[in-house]
């Protein structure tokens, strides 16, 4: 008898299931219905969905696939291509560290290292209490203030590794 076997080598990337509020889904549906046509607007809708839900878990991607009438694999293909889209919720205070060239030559990599050390998490991860998450981003265009760190909307310029503890203490 032939059966299907899954050899769980490596990590399964299936995100955890999430129960999300229905009104949020309605907001996305309304957005989709207002589009002139569905074709060509997958990235636009994913932007909307992420701004509504905060992230794009499996349910949301499936929902978008159904309503945009595209295969789920295609939705996932797009989500996994763009760094702006995330499948895990960010921390309450998302920390974004600019890794543009100007920030790099002024030591942004050391700042990243300091945040990782302090919070004991890796880039892209969230602290167990959900308070902070760390991400690096491309140039924010604030090169005069390099290296730049953003915590939520708050911008810190000329950050040194030594200031990291103090920055975290603000939250």
């Amino acid at each position: 008898m032939q059966t299907s076997t899954c050899q769980m080598v490596g990590e399964c990337r299936m995100p955890e299931h999430a129960v999300l509020p229905q009104p949020l889904y309605r907001e996305v549906v309304q957005f989709i219905e207002a589009l002139p046509q569905k074709e060509g607007h997958l990235v636009t809708v994913l932007h909307k969905a992420q701004s509504v839900f905060g992230y794009l878990p499996i349910e949301v991607q499936q929902f978008v696939a159904d309503h945009m009438e595209v295969p789920l694999a295609q939705v996932y293909g797009v989500v996994s291509f763009y760094t702006f889209f995330t499948m895990v919720p960010k921390g309450k205070h998302p920390i974004s560290i600019c890794m543009g060239t100007a920030c790099f030559v002024k030591g942004a990599d050391k700042v990243v290292h300091a945040f990782k050390e302090q919070l004991k998490i890796d880039i892209g991860d969230v602290t167990p209490d959900g308070k902070f998450s760390i991400d690096t981003l491309r140039c924010v265009g604030g090169c005069a203030l390099a290296p730049i760190v953003m915590v939520g909307d708050k911008v810190y310029g000329n950050v040194t590794p030594g200031q990291v503890k103090k920055i975290l203490a603000d939250f």
């Binding site: 890794m99 543009g100 060239t101 100007a102 920030c103 790099f104 491309r138 140039c139 265009g141 604030g142 090169c143």
Partner: peptide
């Protein structure tokens, strides 16, 4: 889609 790290004239 100004992506060059270290360039921000388009934003300006």
């Amino acid at each position: 889609d100004e992506g060059d790290p270290g360039a921000f004239m388009d934003r300006a």
